[in-house]
Write a protein that binds this DNA or RNA. Structure first.
Lengths: 357, 357
DNA sequence: TCGATCTCTGAGAACGATTACACAGCCAGT
DNA sequence: ACTGGCTGTGTAATCGTTCTCAGAGATCGA
């Protein structure tokens, strides 16, 4: 590799001058400037970002740890973060925790060791032992989607209470008595909050889901299938399932299909987290949509603000209910029943990206 | 931040000794060893990977540039690459080219500047101008999924000719006369190869798609919808559409639904690239499945081999046809027609991850 | 003509690690 | 007691940048 010294020799100047030219300092003459640039060009010189970072105490890099890269929810967030970061001249290094606290801890350490300028974490669990490590290292931290015990870091999250309240009301209005819930892990904030909000909403309506109708999954496909299987094997099985995450929703759907159960005739289904293909199912799936792009953007901005020495406030975006008929919602059911086959959806499917803008 | 010097002072030794302890050299006494470790522990010292990399000329990092992070196909690949890399003690830095050659070039440069030990690229286009830059820098390069003009780098790709031949045969056998193709961009190897292979297969069967029935998209959702719209607006519209990528397939599906067209009654659909939700549609979508996890793993291994100084051969995996009935395939259609509603799929949906193992 | 001021450039010290080399003890063999 | 071979440790160079500081000319006013 050619270094700055090579360029300096070739141009007949010192490395200091080369550095000044490279960083756009005022000092160098137009003449030396062109000489240096010519040398850089001839040698195909590219500065070593490692050395630069070591000297500058800044890597222009953000670290992002997502709970599960295969979850399109996080993939979209990752993409949004990256867009925002690039717009500010930052690069993003990803880590995939795979919903595992240990793997997450490993990545936190790896990224701290590489001296990222800031860390964005979608925590795998409530356990916040790792936060102390980050705080000690002095690297700015922003939490995304989920919170963590004993952390004072800014949080960017989604409030689904209102949407869940609407969903509960809609289910009750449709006449559902036995509501099955495939909840997220009890040791994640989103897992608990969604379940709590939904339970509270039902309670307001005078209903209370039976304990055996509430199962916890792990935000992944297989657990959704397992939970659906368990729920549908009960003597008094639910008339509708609410999956608190798109992957568990996918698993539940697979399980229902595998059992030959028809949605919503045999059992209704609602899912937390919209995905582009949900409107394409028959019936289209009723979902609670989260503003993923906005989340990623907001998180990146908060982190950049933190890096700039500001004190960004917590961000709380709101999810919203998108009723599509998979719970046998009034009006949609009857309309649907009149068409013999797989019919066209009534409205053009709304894309997630459109919703976010 | 505490540095090695701090540790050395605290333990009453030199930085050399600290380094030796850290890197497991034989030299230090058990006594000094424990003293150093104690100091490290008390100070919460973490080595600076930047300084280490600068000195060692190795970052233990692989760069991965994907064409589009939002495409689940690439998300799965990214995940597989990361798993394999981690197993060998490497970290992965991602870049998202967004199907843009310029953005890809920017990322190539950024990653080279950060001195990644190796580069894995899913090229956005055929243009291989950037390859020279990588070669000059001496950083090992492996191409993934798509090839590039004038490159001698090892390639990991998927051969879909046999699967496409089977698909063509199946479509012809089902009686499809007018076959519409939503092809990938002509300036990508996969875009061309899939179209060529499919056309050749049809030619073998004595058919030849009409020129106006072949449209090129850009491997993204909107282009699939636009192409489907154009094709279905023709006076002699196709009886079946073949989308050469899962996102274009998604777009096409949305468009068909929006127009109130029923698959496969009004028009058949087949898609290149399986996704977990394809089996859940009614009818389940016939696809050509690619071994994504195997691709990512193979690519990472090839790159690591290259870094180790070996000369890995090109890898060519094979895609396979999964017939599900969305093209009105014989046997499936009749069975389907007998059930009035959204029916259960006939076999348990096969998950992508199972297929890859 | 002589400072004073201003502009440009270079020498060299960081940044935080690794490691070649030297050296100080120690023990064994003569 | 002296040599020679170990063993364990420290000194200092090095990686490729940035940046402080100081010096070399040039310009200018008195």
């Amino acid at each position: 590799m050619t270094t700055m010294k090579d360029v300096a020799n070739r141009a007949g100047v010192s490395t200091a001058t080369v550095s000044r030219v490279l960083n756009g300092h005022a000092a160098p003459t137009e003449q030396t400037r062109t000489r240096v640039l010519a040398a850089i060009d001839e040698l195909g010189y590219r500065p070593n970002a490692l050395a630069r970072s070591l000297r500058m105490h800044s890597t222009k890099t953000l670290g992002l740890i997502v709970s599960d890269l295969l979850n399109p929810f996080f993939a979209e967030i990752a993409r949004a973060v990256e867009d925002e970061a690039r717009a500010h001249g930052y690069c993003v290094v990803f880590g995939n925790a795979d919903e595992s606290a240990e793997q997450q801890a490993t990545y936190v350490r790896t990224l701290l060791d590489r001296r990222v300028d800031g860390l964005l974490v979608c925590p795998a669990t409530d356990d916040g032992g790792w936060v102390a490590e980050v705080t000690e290292s002095g690297v700015p931290l922003v939490l995304l989607d989920r919170t963590v015990d004993g952390s004072t870091a800014p949080v960017v999250r989604v409030d689904g209470t209102e949407a869940l309240r609407e969903l509960a009301a809609s289910l009750v209005a449709t006449g559902h008595e036995r509501i099955g819930v495939i909840a997220g892990p009890a040791n994640t904030s989103t897992g608990r909050e969604r379940l709590d909000a939904f339970s509270a909403a039902l309670a307001e309506l005078g209903r209370r889901p039976r304990p055996e109708h509430v199962l916890h999954g792990d935000f992944r496909r297989a657990s959704g299938a397992a939970a659906a299987a368990a729920l549908m094997s009960l003597p008094e099985r639910p008339s509708v399932l609410v999956a608190m995450d798109n992957l568990m929703g996918l698993g539940a759907l697979e399980e229902l299909r595998g059992r030959g159960l028809v949605v919503p005739r045999d059992v209704g289904l609602a899912v937390y987290d919209d995905q582009p293909w949900f409107p394409l199912l028959d019936p289209p799936i009723t979902v609670i949509a989260q503003p993923t792009v906005a989340m990623g953007g907001a998180a990146a901005r908060s982190l950049l603000a933190l890096i700039a020495g500001e004190q960004p406030a917590d961000v709380r975006l709101t999810a919203r209910l998108v009723s599509r008929g998979s719970c046998g919602e009034a009006g949609l059911v009857s309309e649907r029943a009149s068409s013999p086959f797989n019919t066209a959806v009534r409205t053009r499917p709304t894309s997630v990206s459109e919703e976010d803008s």
